[in-house]
Design a protein around this nucleic acid. Structure first.
Length: 199
DNA sequence: GCGTCGATGGCA
DNA sequence: GCCATCGACGCG
């Protein structure tokens, strides 16, 4: 992995980045989903570090939300969603793609935020415009399920200088979810070219 | 540029 | 028998 060098501006920017704490995640998914836009996702693994700026998320707001996996009850797969905020919920879909989610809200309150797209940072080129591609390219999978995001392997950073214009829309790929299809629970950076389609 | 379709495996 | 997806294919 490439590491910046001695550019003064870059060093100053890096110094102001702060890891998101438990309190950031311990809120309703809808608030966390909106505020995650512009945050920096970091995955350290096997001597490599992947960084990317989050540009698209979706909120899954609890058991009453028919698109939320928790609406099917507490199962082996969804167990982490019912646990403490600030942990990774990663699952396999369509037999070949892994989805990275962030558990939010209190214990027993099963809410989560799906990370759908990001822009690679740090001289690393990759297409992260979709949840399956993002997880694959950042080498995030079920091995990372349950990881504590206040730790040092998988976490998010706040860049105080990054103030994106965030817009809302319907969530993608949940046509089975009845009236919840229409809920505006998807958030994305209006300026980003890395947002997954459709707009 | 669109719509349609198949891959592929864990889970309920 | 579903899927919080993606990429390949066929149109005309």
């Amino acid at each position: 992995m490439r590491c910046g060098g001695d550019n003064a501006e870059l060093m100053a920017a890096k110094r102001s980045l702060r890891k998101l704490r438990r309190s950031f995640y311990d809120r309703d998914a809808i608030d966390v989903a909106r505020e995650l836009i512009g945050k920096i996702l970091v995955h350290r693994r096997a001597g490599e570090e992947f960084r990317a700026r989050v540009v698209e998320t979706e909120a899954y707001v609890g058991p009453h939300d028919l698109a939320c996996h928790a609406s099917k009850g507490r199962t082996g797969r969804t167990e982490v969603m019912f646990g403490r905020a600030g942990h990774a919920y990663v699952y396999l879909i369509y037999g070949m793609y892994q989805m990275l989610n962030i558990v939010t809200a209190g214990v027993g309150d099963a809410q989560a935020v799906l990370i759908r797209a990001a822009e690679p940072l740090g001289g690393w080129e990759s297409d992260l415009s979709g949840p399956g591609k993002l997880a694959r390219e950042m080498q995030i999978g079920r091995a990372q399920n349950g990881l504590d995001l206040t730790g040092s392997e998988l976490f998010l950073l706040d860049d105080p200088a990054d103030r994106p214009r965030v817009v809302r829309s319907k969530r993608v790929g949940i046509d089975y979810a009845g009236e919840w299809v229409h809920a505006l629970l998807r958030f994305y950076d209006a300026q980003s070219a890395s947002v997954s389609k459709p707009r």
